[in-house]
Design a protein around this nucleic acid. Structure first.
Lengths: 103, 103
DNA sequence: CAGAATACATCGCAAGGCGTAGTATTGTGT
DNA sequence: ACACAATACTACGCCTTGCGATGTATTCTG
């Protein structure tokens, strides 16, 4: 997909990935890959931004001797997802404009 | 609408604006405003990029003593619009993922 | 006659995606 | 046993791009 089109959808996808259960970096990338692929150097800054925005919480836990950071969505994060659902209408109207027939 | 979400849609909207008849900068902004608003300093670089990409042709003509640049879509530009229609399916699948219920 | 509208152009900031690279551990194939 | 892929996180720096601010010039309107 066009790089530009992905922007704006990336953050929302990350939030959607932890919508129902907490997850960690590597898993998030794999989970959303069927929809949008992103590199680690894209994801981690996004996670940091989402944390600073209060959209998610972080928790460090040991897994197999390795440290893992688990990310959990907050109420603000859920609001953000709902807001996206609102904005979807605007995107739809753009789609209709772009694909309109005749004139 | 979220700035990030607009990206990628802007260029496509500009192409859509000249889909059926040539137009010029100021008019394009007014035409697409109901769908996405963009400033002139955003539009003109986009027009230049689209021209360099061969998606549109430019023609200068005098209108009321003032010079106007008319932009006309090319075959490559139309292909680009069709490509967007293809990518729309990917966007839809992302939307479905983000708004999925249960798990 | 002032101010809004029309019309185009340029500069520079800041945000953000991503390539590249680094570190460290665990699992797998031969 | 050893190489290599996979797992897991972090940091640096390039480059694209939207946009605010600003400039110039003409025409229309109250």
């Amino acid at each position: 997909m066009d790089i530009q089109l992905k922007r704006g959808l990336l953050e929302i996808c990350v939030l959607a990935a932890i919508k129902y259960e907490e997850s960690y970096g590597y898993k998030i990338i794999k989970d959303i890959k069927p929809y949008v692929s992103m590199s680690e150097s894209t994801l981690y800054p996004i996670l940091k931004r989402l944390e600073e925005a209060g959209s998610l919480n972080v928790r460090s836990a040991e897994y197999n001797g390795r440290l893992r950071k688990y990310y959990c969505i907050t109420a603000a994060g859920r609001e953000r997802l709902e807001q996206f659902a609102q904005e979807w209408n605007e995107i739809l109207s753009i789609y209709n404009y772009v694909t309109r027939e005749g004139d």
